[in-house]
Write a protein that binds this DNA or RNA. Structure first.
Lengths: 189, 189
DNA sequence: GTAAGTCAACCGTCCAGCCGGTATAGTCAC
DNA sequence: GTGACTATACCGGCTGGACGGTTGACTTAC
């Protein structure tokens, strides 16, 4: 009877553990030992599922990229059709969820992101692909050029501020930013 | 007659070397040995000037924060007075320099930034202080609330995209983003 | 019995920090 | 002005610990 305290199959548990460690102790805290221990597995057990640290991080990143793509797609689907649909989806993604939901998403993404970038920037490939698709979508959005990209960049900026703890806008401030950026949705150039 | 090949006092040379290493080989390439060698100093010599790796990174960050504050201040000074002056300075900072100048600044900042964050997020304090001052300035800018913050966030987003190599807007795209964000400067709400 | 999954001990490498040294320059006593 | 002493700047070998990865044995489940 293996384990007992923890749930799910070992693979998922290991990925979750790795993510949690990065969130709690930073990228440098992510060692195979630590991840194994937190997942309730020995180091050998971990290496059975992920043959190297790089494989572990690749696993983390693949899962993340998939989530991101789905999350964003469902955000677009939730917007009425018409010009600026994708841009509106981005605003909704960045501003219309509860603060807790946004922070949770940001922090998970940040952990995976930073771990991958630190180990080898090339590992970010899957995320880059997802982002490239978003940019394509926002370009074909029916808004004047640059408007969608500007909205997207503002969302990215908030993400970065959260990742590095640079600043944390208050709720009223976020609301005002949302309103300001919404002006860019008006088709009148 | 010590040294010969390299210029400047040892302290500055070491800081420059550390920065160059992070840019060339990433945060994990920054070791005391490597920094010392690149600066044309022995490890012992480096440790004479910076008593620990943390002290070295703190030095890097202090220098960076100072530059940033001065750079931004001079950008504000270059804008005509009136509402939106600080926001206009931010746009100028992010869009009106030559691409090479912007990339150079971004890459230097990114190197210091990532090194500090990786070693200990708390080290970012000085940068956070500079950014907090910018946010205060943009709030007292005479623009409707949120507009300045939105412009600032968009600039931050472009910075992040560059840091992590997520995407690289073409010059026409940047120009269009600039135009779009400039709409937020119009006082008519 | 055999294959999948797990374990613990071990190895080689790398790195931060330490420490005992060297060399040059300045200062003071006499 | 010369010898004793001190401060500043720098050197490079060493070490102890951490980390990624390997090995081989054990334990179920089928």
């Amino acid at each position: 009877m293996p384990d007992g305290s923890v749930s799910g199959d070992a693979r998922t548990r290991i990925l979750d553990a790795a993510e949690a460690i990065v969130r709690a102790r930073g990228v440098s805290g992510l060692t195979l030992d630590a991840a194994a221990r937190q997942a309730g597995v020995s180091k050998g057990g971990l290496l059975y599922h992920f043959g190297s640290k790089e494989a572990l991080i690749t696993g983390l990143l693949g899962r993340m990229a998939e989530w991101m793509a789905l999350d964003f797609e469902s955000c677009v689907a939730g917007q009425p059709e018409g010009p600026g649909r994708v841009a509106r989806a981005m605003l909704a993604w960045a501003f219309e969820l509860t603060p807790d939901a946004i922070n949770e998403r940001c922090d998970r993404a940040a952990a995976v992101f930073l771990a991958a970038f630190h180990h080898d920037p090339a590992l970010l490939g899957p995320i880059r692909a997802v982002i490239a698709r978003m940019r394509k979508a926002v370009e074909a959005d029916g808004l004047p050029p640059g408007h969608g990209h500007a909205i997207m960049a503002a969302g990215d900026g908030l993400f970065m501020a959260r990742v590095f703890g640079l600043y944390a806008p208050t709720e009223p401030e976020r609301h005002a930013m949302h309103a300001a950026l919404s002006r860019l949705l008006e088709v009148a150039s």
